[in-house]
Amino acid sequence: MVVVRRAALEIRREEDMVRVRRSVRQWADELGFGLVDQTKLVTAASELSRNALVHGGGGTVVFEALEDGPRRGLRLTFTDEGPGIPDVELALSDGYTTGSGLGFGLGGAKRLVNEFSIESRRGAGTRVVMTRWK
């Protein structure tokens, strides 16, 4: 598998999320994803960037266009230096929130992509990596 293109965006303010969504749509479109897949990717990215902003105090997202033989994919990595997620399993369960949300963001994002992983420790920030293949 090779990374054919890479870029990064900051997520510091609400406006940044608009930019992240717009870029994800553009990258997905350029990689040949159809409308449904684009919408899924944009929505998942929206969830993770808001988590990075709201729960993680801001962070970054790295975009990577992937090629694996004939397959093409988009990998997005969200990183923040926030308080971390003490219990990842719990955070992933639907309806669990420590804020005022619905608590469907993490689990929902996971269901919208093909590969999904969370690395997080209390006090050490959070990194979420997700990939969708075409």
Partner: peptide, 13 residues
């Protein structure tokens, strides 16, 4: 739209 309906289903909301 259909793509939004499908996405919402996966979100689980």
């Amino acid at each position: 739209r259909p793509q939004i309906a499908q996405t919402i289903v996966h979100l689980g909301v």
